[in-house]
Design a protein around this nucleic acid. Structure first.
Lengths: 378, 378
DNA sequence: ACCCACCTCTTGACCGGTACAGACCGCAGG
DNA sequence: CCTGCGGTCTGTACCGGTCAAGAGGTGGGT
């Protein structure tokens, strides 16, 4: 086989071939012509090393290197192969929240860690909706993670319509899709039971809901729209209800410090102030502690507080928060696995079973210093 | 005019057309046949609304909806158009570190925020290197952010070879690429000057380097391989050198608590213990404080400590750390802007100037409680 | 000597779009 | 009546690969 190969000299923008005219771009064909083989063989040299002799492959790779050819064009390969090597991540809020919210960050860190060996990239999808650019619809991906999104979000629908393999996290899944959910019912129930065991019967709840403003919910059973919020409320109530506790639920529009503070004031201002408070998150619990302290209410002597998530601030809080821990690492691993399995399944891989996965991540009550027996009646 | 979006009521696997036989997949052609127009017109209905009458467009969109067609296949579109709508992010460590390291997380949060309006997705590239799957080489993207990577990392080279528009962050850029750098020289110098102003002359430095183990550097000028590390050392020395300070540099293999602790012990065990210490990061400074305290050395009374970054722990530390703040939000915005500009430039957009951008993000000394005047000689 | 399996490489079709240059048409202006 | 023109739609040629089937040559088994 004759392979005339002259040393290629620099490619400062201007391409050219020894024979023929100027060429716009180096492709498989360019190299094939250079070496004198078919395009397919060059393709194999890169993608299927076992399909040609090591010798020829070396020649081809050398020629490619010389011509400044990196490897098969990813976009073209995606089209031909039907896979892209990236999975999407859809979030409720801005993508920034994935990094700012410590719970989300820990979760995605774990997902990334678990996904790394597969070589899949994590594509964070902005949820903007300009009529022409809709990431959830237009970005190439092999599957996606839907993280705690409002179920009716338009981007979710795009993903569904694309029939992409999906995994719903902290959110009710659609039929046929896999899910990774926290065992919130059990966790919340344990937290409530803990308070009951300490003798508390007048209990406040601070949780997020669909309401626009902070306020006392008419009926404790009325949980917010959010899936997670609903689960936690039901968990708490499943212990408090039967015990005949006197429950006051305060709804917050979201999980922010500002609203948590308003909610805290609302509860503390009640005539019959609760002796214990269950919070939707550690952030809210932490804020509650702060507001209580500023009003001269001692935690846990006068009032017990329970958080949720066991985020870093739980340990940092003064006093350290009793809370419900979720194993974020396990959750991340489960989500990554469920996603790769869903993708494999969509490709007809029979080794992964056929039903969608439904993982329930266990929760655990962590008792610290923010809870104590109910104080003697004043 | 937008497509009406109903909550997609299941297309359970089985496809079929009203006319003709079973069809493998719905494409532009399927719809074109259904409506009786050319494929191109259907394409325009989705991608170039102004190229056909509103009437026909509506008909086409309706037919598409009916057939369960979501929109042009992203992979195919990428190939034809030459853009993907995603930008890559390359990190030194595992992708998880983007979420775990608070500095990186804040930075990427800001990048994402700034990138959102453009509709570009952020694809986090795992740096695994199995011979067949190399994300940096194989994943379709329009450009990439290279974040504080060792310059000789293989993935960086793949990106370069692909001739992608790149932005180097916290890292020396290659020729022709844009960069976003912290003004570390100035920040470090200010920190050192602050100590000099307080009267300190015997000063320790704890910084990361290429060394395998913790140890005293023979020559203060020998900075580590890391770009950032080098910059900071030079900044510190630019003040300390001329002042004739007695400087001891301890090299750490990385920015971890374990090694920081070893480094701290090394400095504290010196016969002529420094009266002040400059640290590469807040984490190291925070660890130093802890070790010092455990040895009965009081900060700042006996010894002053300066951190770097003004990360959350700087404020949390006991005593709160004097440190050098970097505006992570500004850094993120600058990086996002530089990247979109680089992409625009690569497409021949003349409105963005032709040279690569080189942004220098300002730093600022924040004096808290961990620094004090040099103590009287024992 | 013969047949077949095996290793290599080639051929032709296809992945699902988009760009660009017309073709066709009704209408206002000279 | 012919011309020029803008608005619509069509035809053709890509974009740069991969897949599946087949064509030669080689060597081993019998």
């Amino acid at each position: 086989m004759t392979t005339p190969m002259r040393p290629a000299d620099a490619y400062p923008g201007s391409y050219g071939t020894s024979e023929g005219g100027a060429v716009g771009r180096v492709t498989l064909q360019t190299i094939a012509d250079r070496v004198g083989v078919s395009r397919m063989t060059v393709s194999n040299a890169f993608s299927r090393p076992d399909q040609l002799s090591a010798e020829l492959r070396a020649t081809i790779l050398a020629a490619a290197d010389e011509l400044g050819y990196v490897g098969p064009d990813p976009a073209a390969r995606s089209l031909a192969r039907g896979t892209t090597g990236a999975v999407g991540v859809l979030l409720t809020e801005s993508v920034g929240s994935a990094f700012q919210d410590p719970i989300a960050a820990a979760f995605f860190g774990s997902v990334a860690q678990e996904l790394a060996p597969t070589g899949l990239a994590l594509a964070l999808l902005p949820s903007v909706e300009s009529p022409d650019r809709i990431p959830a619809r237009d970005i190439p991906m092999d599957g996606a993670l839907v993280y705690s999104c409002a179920g009716d979000m338009a981007p979710v629908n795009w993903l569904i319509k694309r029939k992409l393999p999906l995994v719903f996290v902290d959110q009710a899944p659609i039929a046929g899709a896999s899910s990774v959910l926290l065992d919130d019912r059990v966790g919340a129930r344990a937290a409530a039971q803990h308070l009951l065991d300490l003798g508390h019967r007048r209990i406040g709840i601070l949780t997020t809901a669909s309401d626009r403003s902070v306020g006392i919910a008419p009926d404790p059973a009325t949980a917010g729209v959010g899936y997670v919020s609903r689960e936690r409320v039901e968990g708490w109530m499943s212990a408090l209800g039967p015990a005949g506790a006197d429950v006051t639920v305060v709804h917050l529009p979201d999980n922010t410090e500002v609203h948590a503070e308003q909610g805290a004031r609302t509860l503390l201002a009640l005539d019959d102030r609760p002796t214990a408070v269950l919070c939707f998150s550690d952030l809210i619990a932490w804020t509650f502690e702060r507001v209580a302290r500023s009003q001269g209410v001692r935690v846990p002597d006068d009032l017990s507080v329970v958080g949720y998530d066991d985020s870093p601030i739980a340990r940092r809080a003064q006093p350290a928060l009793t809370t419900v821990r979720q194993d974020l690492d396990a959750k991340g691993r489960a989500a990554a696995t469920a996603l790769t399995r869903a993708i494999a399944r969509s490709r007809g891989d029979a080794t992964v079973g056929d039903g969608p996965d439904a993982v329930l991540v266990p929760t655990e009550l962590v008792v610290r210093e923010s809870t104590a027996p109910v104080p003697a009646e004043r």
